[in-house]
Design a protein around this nucleic acid. Structure first.
Length: 109
DNA sequence: ATTCTGACGTGGG
DNA sequence: CCCCACGCCAGAA
């Protein structure tokens, strides 16, 4: 996958996020060897919004905050998607974030 | 080509 | 934990 475009790499990782788990933009960027381009991961997700069925709702920032919920259709679509997977969210903040955090570097390798 | 912009992260206070 | 400033770099205007 190293030969693919940056966006495609991000999509590949995003698709691998297990049900009910979440990860961060920075973790994905780090896994891709572009730790300084965490923002680009977010940009890639924005582009992926129309392309494929990417579980973008499972990608949040390092605090476990749903910073990108505003980019979904409704104002609470992202939260509902996560809650439907068993993730508890209060005030855009994922509860027990570290427990459900999925680090591609550690889990996937 | 130049200038913003941003779904981020880190370090210092 | 919060707040602030800075770095980062692919796209868009």
């Amino acid at each position: 996958m190293e030969n693919k475009n940056f966006f495609q790499k991000v999509y590949s990782i995003a698709k691998l996020i297990p049900f009910g788990r979440v990860t961060s933009y920075g973790a994905i960027a780090k896994y891709l060897g572009a730790a300084r381009s965490a923002r680009m991961v977010g940009w890639a997700m924005n582009a992926s919004h129309n392309l494929e069925e990417i579980p973008a709702h499972r990608v949040v920032n390092r605090k476990g905050l749903l910073t990108g919920k505003h980019h979904f259709d409704g104002t609470n679509l992202m939260q509902q998607l996560l809650e439907s997977e068993g993730v508890i969210i209060i005030d855009n903040q994922i509860q027990n974030f570290e427990a459900i955090f999925w680090d591609p570097l550690k889990e996937l390798n």
